[in-house]
């Protein structure tokens, strides 16, 4: 299947290229856009593996939600150069540390990695039984891996609470529309019909 092979190299090459451009782009917004392009290519790779569900979820969650937040942040925060210059010296060490950590991890993994003997006889897809990729994931995720699934729920809960705590504003008196009050308002509380005699006023 030459075409699908070519597709693989196309997507893989574009993924690597856009990852590289994410790193070297000068404007943060451009970086974020290259990152989005990388996610899309990653979704293409998932499709080539035959896992449609993961490809679509990848697009929906990473591109449609996470990257939107990135773009919001990157677009709306105006970098203050003077403050940044002071802080950046310190921050520069962190990526180096992380890089060393992941680099050594890669060395360990690649050094000790080999195929499981039966790997070549396995099929990544449950395509032999007539069952779609999505159903296959759904059948085990909520039963066999139920505990991990609930842990994911707790992580999301933590994220939600954390976001609210971080963005909490001082409670102040707000003008809020109370729709129930508006709807429940009676005519007699608001309108008074009175007879006004001529030349006397109310």
């Amino acid at each position: 299947m030459v075409i699908f092979g070519m597709m693989f190299y196309l997507f893989a090459g574009l993924t690597l290229l856009s990852a590289f451009l994410t790193l070297i782009a000068r404007a943060p917004v451009h970086s974020a856009l290259w990152l989005i392009f990388m996610f899309l290519n990653g979704a293409g790779l998932f499709v080539l593996l035959g896992s449609e569900l993961l490809a679509m979820i990848f697009v929906i969650v990473y591109v449609g939600a996470v990257a939107v937040l990135f773009l919001f942040v990157v677009m709306m925060i105006k970098p203050q150069r003077e403050v940044l210059k002071k802080e950046i010296k310190w921050y520069k060490r962190i990526p180096v540390l992380i890089g060393i950590f992941f680099g050594s991890e890669m060395v360990f993994i690649l050094g000790g990695w080999s195929f499981v003997p039966v790997a070549s006889t396995l099929d990544q897809l449950p395509s032999r039984v007539q069952i779609s990729n999505t159903t296959a994931i759904g059948n085990i995720l909520y039963t066999h891996y139920a505990v991990l699934f609930e842990i994911a729920g707790f992580i999301l809960l933590g994220a939600m609470v954390g976001a609210i705590v971080l963005t909490k504003r001082a409670p102040k008196e707000r003008y809020r529309q109370k729709m129930s009050d508006q709807v429940l308002e009676k005519k007699k509380n608001r309108i008074k019909i009175c007879h006004v005699d001529i030349r006397k006023g109310v």
Binding site: I57, G64, V68, T134, A152, A159, A163
Partner: peptide, 25 residues
């Protein structure tokens, strides 16, 4: 609040993403 909406959206979007395969099977 724009950030907050985006963060909450991520969380609920993941929730929806979990619901889809569940709905199938």
């Amino acid at each position: 609040r724009f950030y907050l909406v985006a963060i909450l959206f991520i969380i609920f979007d993941i929730e929806v993403a979990f619901l889809f395969p569940w709905a199938i099977s």
